[in-house]
Simulated assay, not measured.
Amino acid sequence: MTTQSSANGDDGARLELLIKQAAMAQPLITAVVQPTDSRCLSGAIEAADRGLIKPILIGSEARIREAAEDGGVALGRFDIMPCGSDEEASAQAVHLVRAGRAHALMKGAVHTDVFMKPVVATAGGLRTARRMSHVFVLDTPAYPRLLLITDAAINIAPDLETKRDIVQNAIDLARAIGIDPPRVAIVCAVETVTPKLPSTCEAAALCKMADRQQIVGGVLDGPLAFDNAVSPIAAEAKHIVSSVAGRADVVVVPDLEAGNMLAKQTEYLAGAHLAGVVVGARVPIMLTSRADSALARLTSCAVAVLYRRWQLAQAAIA
């Protein structure tokens, strides 16, 4: 099933397609860390009700039950693993993954730094040979297809090697949700290679790395300015001849600040619906926020399900 349909994006219809697609797979056993807020807990329970995940609730049992009462949800069919502190709960979730008892992680009412610390630990964490990165999956009525933005949450000022991993992670996720091959725009302030803007030189290097099969599975172009990455009119006005310009599926930003502001601008000024996951670890990781909408939480779960299924399929091929 393709997610690049002409469905009207003003109500998140393309994200709903992902949810329906993911619900056709087996529920993903997910360690949910400190679901002690009614919105966090309700999001996990709703995802379970939709057949997306099978949650293991890890944290303060008293606070989890209080959140359930506040949210009007029943906990009878769900496993609760009592843990005292946020640090203990986060570490326990990683242990469950390493033991094969969970196949995804979800952040609840815990600070991201605390949640991610055992994940990125050199010993006992969930690292792979590739750097972890975050990918937003965005559906906005202002664009005729889903748009992936990366990295806006994990790597603050990535160097070229890290950007290579960020690009590859995004390509893999795009393919997992049905965009294959994805068109990847390496965006900068301008669309020309300019030594005064090192990000433009790195963009050009990433494209050459793709030519040399150091990045695979996608079609890259860069540097591109954001306007000519997503607007055919802007690309034509700049006389850019490219299979990516004007219709990018993935936008790779120069640093976290640029990505974070871009994602939030589209959400609050362009009516976009956002979901996102961390990829590049052993399993997908859902960095949900208490401010997230129900659609964002469900889609993050759906993307994680599809990505995990893709991971397993690739491992079987290898």
Score class of each variant (00 low, 15 high):
G108R: 03
L15F: 13
A258L: 04
V305R: 09
T30P: 02
V216Y: 02
A102D: 06
G108V: 00
E69K: 15
V114S: 13
E69Y: 06
I179S: 05
L298V: 10
G259I: 03
H134W: 00
N260H: 14
R101L: 14
T266M: 12
L41E: 01
V305T: 12
D70S: 14
G12F: 07
R308W: 09
A170S: 15
A234G: 10
V32G: 03
D292A: 11
D255K: 05
R65N: 09
R127Q: 14
V219I: 15
L147S: 06
C40T: 06
N228E: 12
R308L: 04
Q168Y: 05
M106E: 09
G217L: 06
P232D: 04
A91F: 01
T288I: 13
K238W: 05
A174V: 05
L148R: 01
T140I: 11
Q168G: 01
A235R: 04
R14W: 05
R308T: 06
V253T: 13
A237C: 02
E257L: 12
Q4M: 12
K54Q: 15
L147W: 00
G124E: 08
F136W: 11
A248K: 01
D11S: 14
M106L: 15
R65Q: 15
L147P: 03
R145S: 15
S6N: 15
A174S: 12
A225Q: 04
A316S: 13
P82S: 05
L306Y: 09
T112K: 14
P35R: 07
T200I: 02
